Amino acid sequence: MSETIRIANADLSVEIASLGAEMQSLKTADGRDWLWNGDTAWWTGRSPILFPIVGKAPGDMLAVNGKTYPMAQHGIARRRDFALIEQTATACRHELVSSSETREVYPFDFRLTLEHSLHGRTLSVTATVENTGAGPLPFGIGFHPAFLWPLPGAESKPHAVILDNGAEPGVIQLEGGLIGKTLPTSPFKAGRLELSHDLFANDALIFPEGAGTGLTFAAEGGPSLAFTFDNLPNIALWQKPGAPFLCIEPWHGMAAHAGGTAELVERPYTVALPEGGTMRFGFSVEVKG
């Protein structure tokens, strides 16, 4: 059975479940929760970790050196219990280590560590991947946190996503959950995307590159969430159409190409971590308002 722990400081509190080391709440001191609540009527996720793939594999089958393995969307880590290996008042670390069970679907040895830590009104989430096996470790990794839309206290206000770099990055259209064509125009104008539910009628908006290392999800004249990303070049925005949440998803890796190979190493932005190597990926979010 999944267990939940709590970390807190004077400004924020966070609950994290052992299942998937998934964040369950992000509350300010006034009791408002900024994280999606997992309402089964819309989407049961709240903030899953995506590993060793991001997105879908063709027919939910992943190929490694020509041999195929069953692999559900977004990988295996979100569906497995992590061990709590360290906890303080304001931080915790959970760990998932490869096993005979994981090797049946992902034939590699690894250690995946997730750390949640609080600093004032900022939450930082860091994933560390270690290659504990022989030969390179291929993988994709990503974060999938969902936040309330509208933001708390801003129910009547328009919302927008504003890129720190002011760019207009290209956006990809998904085809059956797989990477399709790049659309002719960016939905961002001078780094600003005015949010509306119809933006997500055809699934997520995926920006393979150019969105930069930071953005703000904000209500006009109201509260906001300011994000920074580390070693996560791909950004996606997703909402189940009409649902009261917005997922802000930084990734290093994407779904397989529509009509393409199922080989893991051929997926866009796949990492090939050398034997004995370690890589870190993370995001932080500051609650403002």
Rank of each mutant, 00 (worst) to 15 (best):
A8H: 10
A8R: 08
D11I: 00
L12Y: 01
L12W: 00
I16N: 02
A17Q: 06
A17S: 10
S18G: 11
L19T: 09
Q24R: 11
S25N: 01
R32A: 10
D33T: 04
G38N: 03
D39E: 01
T40V: 06
A41Y: 01
A41V: 01
W42C: 00
T44W: 09
S47D: 02
L50A: 10
L50N: 14
F51I: 03
P52G: 05
K56R: 07
A57S: 09
P58Q: 01
D60V: 00
L62K: 03
A63R: 05
A63D: 06
V64S: 03
N65T: 08
T68Q: 14
H74R: 01
I76N: 03
A77C: 05
A77E: 09
R78L: 08
R79F: 11
D81R: 12
F82A: 01
L84A: 02
L84G: 03
E86M: 04
T88P: 01
A89H: 12
R93C: 14
E95V: 08
S98K: 06
S100L: 13
E104D: 15
Y106S: 11
D109S: 15
H119A: 14
H119S: 14
G120V: 03
G120C: 04
T122D: 04
V125C: 06
A127W: 05
N131V: 06
N131F: 01
T132V: 11
P136H: 02
F139W: 00
P145C: 01
P145Q: 03
L151S: 06
P152K: 09
K157Q: 12
K157A: 14
K157N: 10
P158L: 01
V161A: 12
L163F: 01
L163A: 02
D164A: 15
D164E: 14
G166C: 12
A167R: 13
P169I: 13
P169M: 11
G170Q: 11
G170H: 12
I172C: 14
Q173L: 05
L174A: 15
E175L: 15
G177H: 06
I179W: 08
G180R: 03
K181P: 09
P184W: 13
S186W: 05
G191Y: 00
G191K: 02
L193V: 05
E194D: 15
S196K: 15
S196Q: 14
D198G: 07
D198R: 14
F200R: 03
A204D: 11
I206K: 06
P208S: 12
E209V: 07
G210Y: 02
G210A: 02
A211S: 14
F217G: 00
A219E: 07
E220L: 04
G221T: 02
P223T: 13
S224N: 04
A226E: 15
D230V: 12
I235H: 09
A236P: 09
W238T: 00
Q239A: 15
P241C: 04
P241M: 04
P244C: 08
P244A: 07
L246K: 07
C247G: 12
C247T: 13
I248K: 13
H252K: 12
A256N: 06
A258M: 10
G260E: 15
T261E: 09
A262N: 10
A262T: 10
A262E: 09
E263N: 07
E266S: 11
P268I: 13
A272G: 10
L273Y: 04
T278R: 11
F281T: 05
V285W: 07
E286D: 11
